[in-house]
């Protein structure tokens, strides 16, 4: 009888997740749209510089704001694109047949796909940040700790949005997954505004529905806190920004949502037939 390698245990499990992640990274790195998005981000930073030049004594402020918004927006859109495309294409193109017939658990496959996607998105956010830093540097604006923290928060947001997209992709078509993920992204960004609107609608069923609905949506505005009020204090990358404690808490919050969404995706994926 053939000596078989062990397939049980955490080390073997990590090995399989890593194998899928590496392959996903390879696959995603070949998607030309990503390079287009990178160009768009650089363009948005250039636009930010132009807009800054047009403003009076607000050059740096506008450039930073538009640059960070571009990273957050394009990063999240890329996350949705990859999330809904990469998992679905495995099923659609039947490449998954040769994978899940091997001793890999379905949850390992889902986590591996996510990890590979997270690697790609992390590289992209790093490149976005580098492009912004270089363009700001060319205008004589030195990098600041506040911008670094904002970048880390944007990265966490992008990874959370990727998990949302994977979740919908585990049971739905790319089109519907994209719509659902975009909707959740928009809702997640608007949670304080929805809360405020619901609070004004006193005496109706709206506040109760809004409260329940907001519990089901990740609070993505926590990751783009610049320009908002936090505990009654205005925070901004141009002045008083959040501390590392807040960043760590936001990262933990994002990680919990990511784990929850991936667990739910794995359960849904577990039940799927691959015909």
């Amino acid at each position: 009888m053939t000596a078989q390698p062990s397939v049980a245990g955490p080390a073997a499990s990590v090995g399989r997740i890593w194998a899928v992640a590496l392959n996903t990274f390879r696959e995603a790195a070949r998607i030309r749209v990503l390079y287009g998005i990178l160009v768009l981000v650089v363009a948005s930073n250039l636009l930010a510089l132009v807009m800054g030049e047009m403003s009076i004594r607000e050059e740096t402020r506008v450039a930073r704001d538009v640059g960070l918004a571009g990273i957050s927006l394009f990063g999240s859109l890329t996350a949705i694109f990859l999330g809904v495309f990469l998992l679905y294409s495995e099923v659609q193109r039947r490449t998954i047949h040769a994978i899940v017939s091997k001793p890999i658990e379905r949850w390992e496959f889902v986590f591996g796909k996510y990890l590979g996607m997270a690697l790609v998105l992390s590289v992209l956010v790093a490149l976005f940040g580098l492009a912004m830093a270089l363009l700001l540097g060319s205008q004589g604006v030195a990098p600041s700790l506040a911008v670094a923290k904002a970048l880390v928060l944007a990265w966490a947001e992008v990874l959370t949005v990727a998990a949302i997209a994977i979740f919908f992709s585990s049971f739905s078509s790319p089109f519907l997954s994209g719509i659902f993920a975009l909707g959740l992204f928009a809702l997640g960004r608007l949670t304080p505004d929805i809360e405020a609107a619901a609070a004004t609608a006193q005496g109706t069923w709206i506040p109760a529905v809004a409260t329940v609905a907001l519990e089901l949506v990740p609070d993505l505005h926590l990751f783009s806190i610049s320009g908002r009020m936090l505990d009654g204090v205005a925070v901004s990358v141009h002045g008083e920004f959040v501390g590392w404690g807040y960043v760590a808490t936001a990262l933990g919050y994002g990680a919990l949502w990511i784990l929850g969404l991936l667990a739910a995706s794995s359960l849904l994926f577990q039940r799927r037939d691959f015909s």
């Binding site: 390698p5 397939v7 392959n23 696959e27 040769a98 091997k102 001793p103």
Partner: peptide
């Protein structure tokens, strides 16, 4: 297992495909 009309990751070489399969089987 050889699936019917095998669909593999077409961006991989055969060596990379076998390396991926080997990793999933837990081979060193």
């Amino acid at each position: 297992f050889l699936p019917e009309q095998p669909y593999f990751y077409d961006y991989l070489t055969v060596s990379e495909l076998l390396d991926l399969a080997g990793r999933l089987f837990g081979l060193d």
